[in-house]
Design a protein around this nucleic acid. Structure first.
Length: 111
DNA sequence: TGAATGACTTCGG
DNA sequence: CCCGAAGCCATTC
């Protein structure tokens, strides 16, 4: 059904650009894509990220640093394990030092 | 075309 | 920071 690309590809593209051991928020990506306000679409797009193995959706969390999307991953703690595997501390589905690992494309890329 | 949905964000209390 | 409610936008049925 329909071409599963366009807005999603942009999200995937940015997600792939997320540096190792860093994370970003849906709103940040949405805003970078020029779709500010479509933060939900970013998450929605991630729904299809499962077809894109190169898309580290686990590096994308909400603005609070909570692993809101972990529930969509294979297991229940897979997302957390992936983050911890990158050196990111996670507790109670929340990223520690979130401000330290936070990666803002609108600033990092355009900087 | 219109209503429903969703891995969010922002505002007020 | 927590809680509840509203807003937003693209996709889907």
């Amino acid at each position: 059904m329909a071409q599963e690309k366009s807005f999603f590809e942009k999200v995937y593209d940015v997600a792939k650009l997320i540096p190792y051991g860093r994370v970003t928020s849906y709103g940040a990506i949405a805003r970078f894509l020029g779709a500010a306000g479509s933060a939900r679409m970013v998450g929605w797009a991630m729904n299809g990220a499962g077809k894109h193995p190169d898309v580290p959706a686990h590096r994308v969390v909400n603005r609070k640093g909570l692993l809101t999307g972990k529930h969509h991953f294979s297991g229940t703690n897979l997302m957390q394990q992936l983050l911890e595997s990158e050196g990111i501390e996670v507790e109670e589905n929340a990223i520690k030092n979130f401000e330290q690992v936070f990666w803002d494309p609108t600033k990092e890329l355009e900087l």
